[in-house]
């Protein structure tokens, strides 16, 4: 059974369709990436999953239960970290962590201390005086200190320094090893690339691509830099070759992933001296989708 299942979810704010028929499935044990440009609808989708917003249409379920109607029951097994963590200025970080952990009723004192140590947080400071990253740490510690089945993280690392980013990634690995599921929305694409098993790209309230990194790579082009003994003839006429550039000896172009075999075969006729091919990064992918479909 899927951990998260969204089917044709629509959310309207007045006349504006923030979500326009979203389908999304997260399977058990999966780390699922959720990316998209600003204002695409990631946070809205997550808030519907959490039963904070009510979907205008479609079905959203977690653990097979309705996200709106059974929110409380579902949340016993869910940990959430919002992108913008607003805390009570006159409570300390330690107090807030305790409060959040207690709301779940399974307290793990050692885990709390360990995480406070790992994230290097001073729990005696008042939240009003915390920096953005430190407020985020409070939410992260509270989330990882609770043994949840599903972690929903909305840009959880947007304020963390590289060291803390690493601690965060370790925590996700631990969660993965424990067989839990994660829905991770993020703008840090290298993080998504490294952590996620599958991902979806959302734009203007619609999912425009879903799959594993490998599958998505196939949808775009590979960058190739090649040097040959003889000049390559009429390369631009070969199907699947794009953005051809010739800098003296060096020829750069990109090629559609499904045509790569044929193209290499063709240029090998001109005696290859060196060849570099770089698979598209998630960033390329993202920009590709963002540009291509009408920007």
């Amino acid at each position: 059974m899927a951990i998260i299942k969204m089917e044709q979810v629509v959310k309207k704010f007045g006349a504006f369709r923030a979500l326009d028929g979203i389908d999304l499935t997260v399977n058990p044990g999966e780390i699922y990436g959720f990316i998209g440009p600003n204002g695409a609808g990631k946070t809205t989708a997550i808030r519907i999953l959490l039963g904070i917003l009510r979907a205008t249409g479609g079905k959203a379920a977690i653990f097979g239960r309705d996200a709106w109607a059974e929110a409380v029951e579902i949340h016993k097994q869910v940990a959430y970290v919002p992108g913008e963590v607003n805390l009570w200025p006159n409570l300390t970080g330690g107090e807030v962590i305790d409060l959040f952990v207690r709301l779940r009723r399974v307290a793990n004192k050692n885990r709390r201390e360990e995480l406070i140590e790992r994230f290097a947080l001073d729990p005696s400071k008042r939240c009003g005086t915390y920096s953005k990253g430190n407020r985020q740490k409070v939410a992260l510690i509270a989330a990882f200190a609770s043994d949840a089945e599903l972690y929903i993280l909305d840009e959880p690392t947007s304020g963390l320094d590289p060291l803390m980013e690493q601690v965060f990634q370790e925590c996700i690995q631990e969660v993965r090893e424990a067989g839990k599921s994660v829905l991770l929305s993020s703008h840090i694409l290298s993080e998504v690339e490294r952590l996620c098993d599958r991902l979806s790209i959302i734009r203007r309230g619609k999912i425009i691509e879903t799959g594993t990194m490998e599958e998505l790579r196939h949808l775009t082009r590979t960058n190739v830099v090649v040097q040959t003994a003889e000049p390559i003839q009429s390369l631009q006429e070969i199907a699947g070759v794009h953005d051809l550039k010739i800098n003296g000896e060096e020829v750069c172009f990109s090629v559609d992933s499904e045509r790569i075999g044929a193209v290499i075969k063709y240029i090998s006729r001109f005696e290859i001296l060196s060849l570099q091919s770089t698979p598209p990064t998630l960033e390329d992918l993202f920009i590709h989708h963002y540009r291509d479909e009408g920007g």
Binding site: N90, L91, T92, G94, E95, V96, I97, D98, L99, R102, L103, P123, S124, K125, R126, G128
Partner: peptide, 15 residues
């Protein structure tokens, strides 16, 4: 200004 606070929550702060 506020003085530094407690590191853990008092027992009643649980809901």
């Amino acid at each position: 200004t506020a003085k530094p606070g407690r590191k853990t929550a008092p027992p009643y702060l649980r809901n």
